[in-house]
Amino acid sequence: MPRVHAVADGTPDSVEVDLGVMPRRVRESLLAQLAEGERIVIRTRQHPLVLARHALWPLLAAWAWWWLVVDVEAAPRLIDLVLLVFLVGLARLAWKELGRRYTWFVATNKRILKHEGILTRTVPMMRLTKVTDMTYHRTVGGEIWNYGTIVIESAGQQQAIRELRYIPDPDEVNAALNSEIFGERPRRRRPGRPRPWSRLVRRDPPPDPPGDGGEPRGGPGGVGPGGGGRARPPAPPSEPETWYRSSGRRPTGRLGDTGEIPVVRAGEDPADQDAWAAEDTDGQAREIPLYPPPEWVDRA
């Protein structure tokens, strides 16, 4: 059985179907109130726990009647008086339940309506453009039995609809109202989220660029000045190697493109680090190991 707040289609053509769950008197009254081309966003009525306080009177009267008859064996007049209190409380509870069935809250793409009344009829309404703020509140009982209160604030001092109490499934109702009033699409819950970053792929460094004379830097054999020395590290390429290019990711809408993260390589021999401690004669800065660590690299 579908929930009372779930509309069938949410289009102007499905208004009569969306109102079909209501009593005939309420359905005809709301159809007369809606304009041509207006569609229903949400429809609901109060949670049954709104009757909990009214049900307390007949329950206490029934317990008192049982206690007087079985345990005390009181006078018949007292028993009849308690029985009368029980019947009155039961009739009052039935009237409140009938009023709950005839009280409906309906939100369309243009206004918010609330139909109430059994013998009489009251339909307060308010345009969505007048809504400035909304407050969503759930008590401990609301968390357990799934109901809540939505308070609607307007720019004017007097408003026809302000507090919607004992709304069932308040999370979904509040999300639908926010979507229609403030233009915010409700977040869709996904069972599992993908990894927020892409897996790093190892990239081999480009070949060493030739020197000014067409030979590798440092003379033939790639050794430093004087020859016979330890081979110097290759010169950095013209375009630095990168591990991550943020323009390939889907934009997050916060910081935008963060640019590229360069990879700076250093020799594995500790003696190389001593040889590169000072800057080169041509102003080339020494290379130091940076991120990413080796275990982040997919070597497959």
Rank of each mutant, 00 (worst) to 15 (best):
Q157T: 14
P240E: 06
R45H: 14
L78M: 07
R265G: 01
L49N: 05
D18F: 08
R202D: 01
S247Y: 11
D274T: 09
I288T: 11
P191Y: 05
A155G: 12
L119P: 00
V26N: 11
R203V: 12
R53C: 01
N146M: 03
A175R: 15
G222D: 04
A235V: 14
R27T: 08
G221R: 04
V131Q: 05
W57Q: 09
I152Q: 04
A235Q: 11
G224V: 04
W145D: 01
R53F: 09
G228F: 02
D13T: 10
P292N: 02
I118T: 14
R249D: 14
T108I: 01
L113V: 02
E287R: 13
P191M: 07
R249P: 02
P206A: 13
K96H: 13
A6T: 12
S247V: 13
G10F: 07
D204A: 12
L119M: 08
G141L: 15
P270T: 00
G222N: 08
E268Q: 06
V223S: 01
A175L: 12
V21C: 13
R138N: 07
W104F: 11
Q33M: 13
A75R: 12
P2G: 00
P225Y: 03
R101V: 08
V106Q: 05
G226L: 04
P292A: 04
G219P: 05
G214Y: 10
P196I: 03
Y102D: 12
P205I: 03
V15F: 03
L93H: 06
I150L: 15
E184V: 10
V264I: 13
A94L: 15
A62E: 01
V4D: 12
W104T: 07
R188L: 14
T281Q: 14
R254E: 09
R188F: 04
R111E: 10
P237G: 13
A160L: 05
T122P: 00
G37V: 01
E116V: 11
E295K: 10
T281W: 14
L83A: 07
E260R: 15
V173C: 09
L200A: 03
L31T: 02
R3H: 09
T122R: 15
T252K: 04
D9S: 08
A231V: 07
L60Y: 05
H47V: 00
R77N: 11
A64P: 01
P12Q: 00
R27A: 12
V50Q: 07
R217Q: 10
R24C: 02
D282T: 05
V263K: 09
E97M: 14
D204F: 09
G211R: 03
P2L: 00
A231N: 06
E215I: 13
E36T: 08
R203T: 09
S154F: 03
G218L: 01
I152D: 04
S154T: 06
E97W: 14
T135V: 15
A62V: 11
P216K: 05
P262C: 10
R111P: 02
G211W: 03
G37F: 05
M125Y: 14
R185M: 07
Y102V: 08
P124L: 05
H54K: 15
T120H: 11
V140D: 12
V21M: 15
L81K: 03
L83G: 08
